Amino acid sequence: MATDAALRRLLRLHRTEIAVAVDSAFPLLHALADHDVVPEDKFQETLHLKEKEGCPQAFHALLSWLLTQDSTAILDFWRVLFKDYNLERYGRLQPILDSFPKDVDLSQPRKGRKPPAVPKALVPPPRLPTKRKASEEARAAAPAALTPRGTASPGSQLKAKPPKKPESSAEQQRLPLGNGIQTMSASVQRAVAMSSGDVPGARGAVEGILIQQVFESGGSKKCIQVGGEFYTPSKFEDSGSGKNKARSSSGPKPLVRAKGAQGAAPGGGEARLGQQGSVPAPLALPSDPQLHQKNEDECAVCRDGGELICCDGCPRAFHLACLSPPLREIPSGTWRCSSCLQATVQEVQPRAEEPRPQEPPVETPLPPGLRSAGEEVRGPPGEPLAGMDTTLVYKHLPAPPSAAPLPGLDSSALHPLLCVGPEGQQNLAPGARCGVCGDGTDVLRCTHCAAAFHWRCHFPAGTSRPGTGLRCRSCSGDVTPAPVEGVLAPSPARLAPGPAKDDTASHEPALH
């Protein structure tokens, strides 16, 4: 009773807030009518008042009428009001819900409408889902798969039609296919003929059939049928067999079959498995989609049935006599038709004709302190090069084509190399640097090759510096006499390219 009084008091307290929050009759008014909170006449009256005075006034009048009803109607109103779709449509209802007392429970059932309790003993237990329907569909599909699609060729003596089998029958139906081979029951999904010589313990000319048996419980189990008994694959494991010639990621696949039913060829011909030897223990289905393919039931050349050999690369099948050149017997292992072999060759040939990528240039590290003349020119003028003790990398590039010797140069053309002071002394051009340390401070000019250098860098042994005729380390061993002091540049003949010694390969005349 306390809860009923509290709900009535809360409705009177929030009546105006609810009326202002509800700006549309749908969905709240319609939901109240659906849950029998508002009768039909009051529903029509509220809609009429909404058209006349507006939605807030109409709902305020409806809530005032609701306060005169019993506690069950008020409880049902609060339940409908706080439904998710009403809270989404009328956003101003959320503060009312947040301020609702926590001790007021809106989930209690309506009085007088409590459903009768059902004894637990009368409640049926839930049924577990079964796979009976899938099993029945598999039974119905198996006879259809064994139905012949056409008439065999005159040369083929193997013609068999499976008798119709009602689904209610649980007995196995067997077809006489000759040579002791028996087909599987209607619940078998796949059958492959297997030679009895590969099964340990088999006697006589009995041949087993590799099947997948579907049981009534819905589970499946792969086994071997020899005669009327089934054997699990673990009985046929043979770890010492060295003649297993397995197909790549293979499961067994029928390579020879008669049109209309699988079996042995007439005249004692023995149908073979995809792999010879003992049956392997793992009978998992292969991951290669080509091995799941269903080959055609007629020859791809003459479009006739009979004894066919199936290609492992495509769905086509052929007569042995229709092949070019014809085959006398079934080859062992994987067999592919000429079209598949030709496609494989065409895929391999473009790969062989692809040009080989060019090898990157060989990189040879230079000892610290040495650099090529090109690196000396590329440096920024007026700045010493940083990191001189790091190992430089010199790339061996292809030799350029031989060019004509340089033409003779006048001494005026070499004027930018040297600057003559007032006393006739050779001065260095701006930006000249030593080729060893890279520093341009207090550098000297070689009178023979006009290269800038430090005496301490080229002659670290402490050799005394002569007063005139300074030469760098590369030119100090040259027998050519030094030019007379005061000459602007060496003779043009000295600039012609010539053979250089091994220790002077990195010091070429550089223009500054």
Results as ranks from 00 to 15, higher is better:
H14L: 01
H14S: 01
I18V: 01
A21T: 01
D23M: 03
D23N: 00
D23A: 00
S24T: 01
A25Q: 02
F26I: 00
P27S: 04
P27L: 04
P27Y: 00
H30I: 00
D34Y: 01
D34Q: 01
D34L: 04
E40F: 00
E40Q: 05
D41G: 02
D41E: 12
F43L: 02
T46H: 04
T46A: 02
K50N: 15
K50P: 00
E51C: 01
K52S: 08
E53P: 00
C55L: 01
A58M: 01
A61S: 15
L62D: 01
L66M: 02
T68H: 04
T68R: 03
T72S: 06
F77G: 01
F77A: 03
V80R: 00
K83W: 02
K83Y: 01
L87P: 02
E88G: 01
R89S: 15
Y90Q: 00
Y90N: 02
G91I: 01
Q94I: 12
Q94V: 14
Q94E: 02
P95V: 11
P95R: 10
P95K: 03
I96S: 00
S99R: 03
P101Y: 02
K102L: 06
D103R: 03
V104H: 00
D105R: 04
Q108W: 07
P109R: 06
R110V: 13
K114H: 03
K114P: 02
A117C: 11
P119T: 15
K120Y: 14
K120G: 11
L122V: 08
V123M: 15
V123K: 13
P125N: 09
P126E: 07
R127E: 03
P129K: 11
T130Y: 11
R132I: 01
E137I: 09
A138K: 08
A140T: 12
A142K: 03
A142Q: 01
A144N: 04
A145G: 14
L146P: 06
T147Q: 06
T147S: 07
P148R: 09
R149V: 05
G150A: 00
G150N: 02
P154N: 06
P154G: 07
Q157H: 14
Q157A: 12
L158P: 06
K159S: 08
K159T: 11
P162C: 14
P162W: 13
E171S: 15
Q172H: 15
Q173M: 15
Q173L: 15
R174N: 00
L175W: 15
G178R: 15
Q182K: 15
T183Y: 01
V188E: 05
V188Q: 07
Q189A: 13
R190N: 12
A191L: 02
A191S: 10
A193W: 00
S195M: 03
S195D: 07
V199F: 13
P200F: 07
G201F: 10
A202E: 07
A202F: 04
R203A: 12
A205K: 12
G208I: 01
G208H: 01
I209E: 04
Q212S: 12
Q213Y: 13
F215E: 05
I224T: 05
G227Y: 02
G227C: 08
G227Q: 10
G227K: 03
E229P: 06
E229A: 01
T232K: 12
P233T: 11
F236T: 01
G240E: 04
S241Y: 12
N244T: 12
K245Y: 13
K245V: 14
R247W: 04
S248E: 04
P254V: 13
P254L: 10
R257I: 07
A258M: 04
A258E: 12
A261H: 05
Q262K: 10
Q262I: 10
A264D: 01
P266M: 14
P266Q: 09
G267A: 08
R272D: 13
L273W: 14
